[in-house]
Design a protein around this nucleic acid. Structure first.
Lengths: 107, 107
DNA sequence: AAGTAATATTGCAATATTACGATGGGATGA
DNA sequence: TCATCCCATCGTAATATTGCAATATTACTT
């Protein structure tokens, strides 16, 4: 066992769980806040900022990227990570919809 | 390693990650939707509804309970699980605040 | 071309999560 | 009393996640 039985669930439930998973680690929350905040798009200060090793940050960035939240471009020799705002707002919309449709009618 | 280094992160980041974790499994999303929807508070139809075994559902319920989202009371011989609406709205507020303060200023 | 800086990938160890069978305990009803 | 139902917990196996050292890759600089 150990693996999630996705076949049992609706695509909506799976989607919510998947985007929640991105936010389900404080380092990823920190990274998202940081790349959103940085005006100058300064890059692997993320490692300094968050305090985890470079491979670990890179791994978390991959999770964020797979979720579609990461944009980036080169600025001189540095690579600049940026939040994909459109996708981020999509996240917000999905959560909002979940919260608004999940209203208690009992007790 | 394998354990999250919580000492590196702010309490806000940890809180967001913790409540996201509750939603980070489709079965728990399904359970939340179900207990919110059910007017009669009927209980371990959750097992039938979601399709996982009773111990597994019980385990997921514990995660939901630890997050403060579960209320319950007896109704005849059955125990009735209910969503703690106040706490659920707190979740929503925390997410909303996160999304609203995490706005990109670069790229 | 060689050196350096920035990032990704690999491999691995530690830990967490998911799932279920077996078991236990409390309440209901025969 | 005793079987039964409902739910929690324990024990355990399978899998996923987290974290880092070592290494590879890529691009810029000298």
């Amino acid at each position: 066992m150990g693996a999630t039985k996705t076949s049992l669930h609706t695509t909506e439930q799976i989607e919510i769980a998947e985007i929640a998973k991105v936010l389900a680690h404080p380092a990823r929350v920190a990274i998202l806040q940081y790349i959103a905040r940085q005006e100058n798009c300064i890059c692997n200060d993320i490692v300094d900022e968050v305090g985890l090793s470079q491979p670990t940050i890179s791994q978390h960035l991959q999770v964020i990227r797979k979720a579609g939240l990461l944009k980036g471009n080169f600025e001189g020799r540095n690579f600049c990570y940026c939040l994909d705002v459109a996708r981020f707002q999509e996240f917000q919309k999905i959560f909002t919809s979940f919260f608004n449709t999940t209203t208690a009618s009992c007790c």
